[in-house]
Amino acid sequence: MTDKPGTPTIYEWAGGAEALNRLTEAFYGHVRKDPVLAPVFADMDAHHSQHVATWLAEVFGGPTQYTEHHGGHQHMATKHLGRRITEEQRRRWVDLLLDTADEVGLPSDPEFRGVFLYYIEWGTRMALIYSGENPPPVDAGDVPRWHWGQTPPWQPKAEDPAS
């Protein structure tokens, strides 16, 4: 499903690259001090917040720079393999990100926040799946693209029974 012609993308509605960079910079500043999340991100690369902003930009209809410069969906998914993220950590990540969205002034209208939260919930639950004991195969699929309408549910590719 795509947006109606002339409708701003979620990326544009959020405020573009500047808003997403502001969000992730403030968010990961909080993460470094958070007792639940700091251990998960202890070895975080200095550019991590910028990479997440680039990912979110692509997810929300902005430039495809994450795919072009960082390896797309496959790269993002492999970053979670073996991390054993807990539900407590996932939930804290969501709550802290939503609090930070308020702090940095992302749009607060229900349509934007509904779509934003829909992706954040979906994405963090995918991180749980990829970080768990039996993750699905990581494919080179496209970065998921969120629109104002609903997105069909993700389905892992069936494993080839011959392998």
Results as ranks from 00 to 15, higher is better:
25 E>Q: 10
1 M>F: 13
82 G>R: 01
106 L>E: 08
154 W>H: 13
61 G>K: 07
69 H>G: 11
15 G>T: 04
20 L>H: 01
15 G>H: 02
37 L>E: 10
140 A>Q: 15
96 L>A: 07
61 G>C: 11
21 N>P: 01
118 Y>V: 05
23 L>A: 04
76 M>D: 09
44 M>C: 09
32 R>V: 09
21 N>S: 08
130 Y>M: 01
85 I>E: 10
78 T>I: 06
72 G>V: 02
1 M>E: 01
27 F>V: 04
59 V>I: 07
69 H>R: 06
13 W>Y: 13
52 V>H: 02
14 A>Y: 03
96 L>G: 01
3 D>C: 15
55 W>A: 12
13 W>C: 14
152 P>S: 07
49 S>M: 09
71 G>T: 05
18 E>I: 13
80 H>K: 08
89 Q>Y: 02
36 V>T: 11
11 Y>A: 15
69 H>I: 00
149 G>I: 12
105 G>M: 13
91 R>A: 05
139 D>S: 05
57 A>K: 07
131 S>N: 04
142 D>T: 05
7 T>H: 10
14 A>N: 06
144 P>M: 10
72 G>A: 05
99 D>P: 00
106 L>Q: 02
163 S>V: 12
76 M>R: 14
102 D>A: 06
34 D>K: 00
104 V>P: 00
79 K>V: 03
96 L>T: 09
24 T>G: 07
93 W>M: 14
125 R>N: 11
87 E>I: 05
137 P>A: 03
159 E>P: 02
80 H>T: 02
3 D>A: 15
132 G>D: 07
63 P>E: 02
60 F>A: 15
10 I>W: 00
114 G>K: 02
19 A>S: 10
44 M>N: 13
162 A>N: 04
31 V>L: 06
34 D>A: 03
60 F>I: 04
104 V>L: 06
85 I>G: 03
63 P>Y: 01
121 E>N: 09
26 A>C: 04
59 V>R: 08
152 P>I: 01
94 V>C: 05
48 H>C: 09
103 E>W: 15
141 G>A: 12
17 A>R: 07
106 L>R: 02
47 H>D: 13
116 F>V: 06
35 P>C: 03
133 E>R: 10
100 T>S: 07
79 K>Q: 14
159 E>L: 09
26 A>W: 15
104 V>F: 13
14 A>R: 00
159 E>Y: 05
160 D>S: 14
27 F>W: 09
86 T>I: 11
48 H>L: 13
154 W>R: 15
38 A>D: 11
117 L>H: 03
92 R>N: 12
96 L>K: 02
73 H>Y: 13
141 G>D: 14
151 T>A: 12
28 Y>M: 07
88 E>I: 09
20 L>M: 06
129 I>S: 11
102 D>M: 12
117 L>M: 04
122 W>V: 04
157 K>N: 05
79 K>R: 15
139 D>Q: 11
9 T>P: 02
22 R>I: 11
75 H>I: 01
64 T>K: 15
12 E>F: 04
21 N>F: 14
123 G>M: 14
51 H>Y: 11
58 E>S: 15
104 V>A: 05
113 R>W: 03
65 Q>N: 13
41 F>A: 08
51 H>W: 08
124 T>C: 09
105 G>Y: 12
126 M>L: 07
93 W>D: 11
33 K>M: 11
43 D>I: 01
39 P>F: 05
142 D>P: 00
2 T>K: 15
